[in-house]
Simulated assay, not measured.
Amino acid sequence: MELVVVNGANAISRGVVSKLAGKQYQKIRLLDFRPYRKSVYDFQRQLSQGVELNKYMVSNAAALEHQLDGASDVLYFTHDYCANAADKNSFIQGTAKLAKKHGVKKLVAVCPSMVDTHT
């Protein structure tokens, strides 16, 4: 079974995906605006034998739509811990609309937040 991971190159997404890869999913489609960074290649080497990780650059709605076509299970991660800004809201809303359009069965959004303790 294949898992599509939107914004999949950050540390939190890599941690979650490493727990799912090989157990529930044999194929991972990692979508990110920088999917070819060193940390992603390091992560790829750490995955279980037989788990296939495919990396795709997604920097606009057309590229995202193309990669969501045929997806069944999608995990969406925010890229940082700050409060949702308008562009982040647009991207998560766009992902949800495209997932619905393409018949995605399961869309889970992981949006951690950090409390600012500096005053």
Rank of each mutant, 00 (worst) to 15 (best):
L68R: 09
K106T: 10
S18V: 00
N7C: 11
V51M: 08
D73E: 12
D42R: 02
L64Y: 14
C82A: 14
P112D: 09
N60K: 12
N7W: 00
G15E: 00
Y36A: 02
N89F: 08
K38H: 02
G50P: 12
E52I: 07
L98G: 00
A11C: 07
S13F: 01
I92F: 15
Q26M: 11
R45A: 13
Q44N: 06
S13R: 04
Q44G: 05
V40G: 01
K88H: 13
L30K: 02
V5P: 10
V74I: 06
H66R: 15
S113T: 11
N84C: 08
I92H: 07
Q26E: 15
L3D: 11
D116K: 11
Y56V: 13
E2D: 12
D32A: 13
L64C: 10
T119V: 08
V108D: 04
R45D: 13
K23G: 11
A61G: 07
L53R: 03
V40E: 07
K105Y: 01
A86C: 14
V108N: 09
S13M: 06
L68P: 00
R29T: 07
S48W: 01
N84F: 14
K88C: 15
R34T: 14
K106G: 04
D116G: 10
N7E: 04
S18A: 10
S39D: 06
H118W: 05
G103I: 15
D42G: 00
V51K: 03
K38S: 05
F33I: 14
L20M: 13
S48H: 04
A71H: 01
N84P: 08
M1A: 15
A96M: 12
T119P: 10
K23W: 04
M1Y: 01
A21Y: 00
T119L: 05
R14I: 05
A86N: 15
L107W: 07
G8D: 02
N54I: 06
K100C: 03
A86I: 14
Y36W: 05
L3H: 07
K55C: 13
M114W: 06
A9I: 01
N89V: 09
K19F: 07
E65L: 08
E52H: 01
Q49S: 15
G15V: 00
Y41R: 11
